[in-house]
Design a binder for these strands. Structure first.
Lengths: 337, 337
DNA sequence: AATTCTTGCTTCATCGATTGAGCAAGCTTG
DNA sequence: CAAGCTTGCTCAATCGATGAAGCAAGAATT
């Protein structure tokens, strides 16, 4: 069939010629609405066979140009280096395909400029809808989409201009903090103010988690110490350095810790291991987010798992409802055990 | 500017009308080759300004239809649930963009049908090149691409019909096995045959790793036991069940283990923790692949890290060279410490 | 003053698929 | 048997961007 290094791809015109019919008939047959267009099943079969023989592949660009809807849905995601975003992307692809949509996903490494650039590119590709996950400036993206008449949604981090689906960070952090404090009491015999480490003070989720962290301290009558809030960013190295700095200032790092992401936890554990004088057993840890290996770390680290399937179900529900006015949907995160 | 809920997106014709000029001039200005086409900088500036005001976004479908090259590069990837594929995807996106290519990535969950379906879709989108990562049937994908005159490459798992870039699994497994056996001697006082667990016996990498595992046993004069090869698949539950079954058969699980992926390791560790009678300390583990938390597990688990940057550099080198005859490039994996 | 060159545009065909409109042949119906 | 209906197709315009070819007006050259 394809002995020749074909420079040109096979088009419906080639198939039409081979079948001795018109391009229009070929198109109708191959995109499935030949019944509507009253093409005989004989011809349909013939065309299908020839198309297969020739290894015909639709030119989506041409098809999309002509049609009104692209059926492309875009997603912007910050990183692939943790289970949370990994599962979001995997499930998003699945759910999109199940709905006849073609997902395109771009990783923007928490870089504001790349986010904008990625959004612009996706608009060029005629996405029907853009989901901005954990975006640093979701409203800017919403504005760009609005200007192009494209729907947008925020996931994980909320925006003011489009529907947002996020975890209930306040409630989650409050419960996580409560659990860490209870563990402190159980294991160390006393409830002491917890260290809060990781994340960006400027992002909504971190702010809400700090609020929940505060609330839980209040609930249990434990004083909070402002110096113990280290919103140093997400990267492991940043957490490690922040702890280093804290230790150098002479503040003994002890008691309990609220770690704001698995990525930060990586740095925290590394630091703990490096500073040999600390035993894991007298540090009581909790982490906002989930990773299977952390469970297996075996230090009884308390974790909250964000409800990814629930969030994505909500995302597609909003998309399908056609709703586009700003609202924040908060889903309770899940406590394992 | 955009007070009106525009049903239609702004096109170069709209801009041309607003600027009192032709669509062709607008096109030339906006795609940057207006100098070549002798458009005055005055007009160029005017058009640029109007385009910005109107929030114009190129219709990529139309543009691509007309141009000869799409500058789209596709990648198929099995899963997002581990650091290896996560870093491949993240770096691939980066490197593609750095080369002026637009990456589209699809996760196929190790599902052969989805792989084919995804490849077909990518061809429809006129990818210039398709990288099949860890594909179950890479040659089928290569054939499809070849029929469409599109280049393809295999990553992680090799194929017979296209250039493949993979880890040197044999050498990696041999060295990993050697290290585990040495650790056995050091910690348990004896070198005993290792258990091999995880992966699919049918895939090239697993077969090569088993070969390396065998070789290392031979190198050190340790007999191998065929019953100890459990190529049960990758999922954690499968590894867990395989160990369960082995234990039920009365074979004591003890000594050392070669675990074929972090995903399988998850199941292994879970099983170890569940079967309380085993202490981590008398099990000597090694894992082909890397995860930061595994390092932190602290059981002295030996790990090999595949050279993702090296592999992707090679992938793009091959793409740029235009080479497309089958060859297998093997990169040595990296041992931490 | 006549010719050629340069500048700065416009015109129009094109990419491949889609679809409303149209048309010819055969079949029904009164 | 003429008028209308059905069946099974084809024609041609269209989507938006692109670029080769062309054209008019002014500048430079002889």
């Amino acid at each position: 069939m394809n002995h020749v290094k074909q420079a040109k791809r096979t088009t419906i015109y080639d198939l039409a010629e081979l079948a001795g019919t018109s391009a229009s008939a070929v198109s109708a047959v191959l995109n499935g609405n030949w019944k509507k267009r009253r093409i005989s099943s004989q011809l349909a079969e013939k065309i299908t066979k020839i198309a297969e023989e020739q290894g015909y592949a639709l030119n989506m660009q041409a098809s999309l140009l002509r049609r009104e809807k692209s059926h492309i849905i875009g997603m912007i995601v910050p990183k692939y280096d943790n289970r949370y975003f990994g599962s979001i992307v995997e499930l998003f692809e699945d759910m999109a395909r199940a709905r006849g949509l073609f997902p395109i996903i771009t990783c923007t490494r928490r870089d504001p400029e790349l986010e904008i650039e990625a959004a612009r590119t996706m608009l060029s590709y005629q996405v029907e809808c853009l989901v901005a996950t954990g975006a640093t400036d979701p409203d800017k993206i919403t504005e760009m989409c609005a200007a192009a008449g494209v729907r947008s949604l925020n996931l994980d981090l909320p925006g003011a201009l489009a529907p947002s689906v996020i975890s209930d960070n306040f409630a989650g952090a409050r419960e996580l903090t409560r659990r860490i404090l209870m563990n402190c009491e159980k294991r160390l015999g006393k409830k002491e103010p917890l260290l809060f480490i990781g994340g960006r003070g400027s992002d909504h989720n971190t702010a809400e988690r700090i609020r929940g962290w505060r609330q839980a301290h209040a609930d249990l009558g434990v004083p909070v110490e402002e110096d113990l809030i280290l919103a140093c960013g997400y990267a492991p190295e940043k957490a490690e350095k922040a702890l280093e700095a804290m230790a150098l200032k002479g503040n003994a790092v002890s008691g309990g810790m609220f770690v704001n992401s698995t990525i930060s936890l990586e740095g925290v554990i590394r630091w703990i291991r490096r500073s040999g004088d600390l035993d894991d057993r007298n540090l009581v840890l909790g982490c906002f987010d989930w990773d299977p290996f952390v469970t297996l770390l075996g230090n009884g680290i308390e974790m909250v798992r964000q409800d990814v399937p629930g969030m994505l179900a909500k995302v597609f529900e909003i998309i399908e409802s056609g709703e586009s006015k700003p609202q924040v949907v908060k889903l309770p995160p899940i406590f394992i055990n």
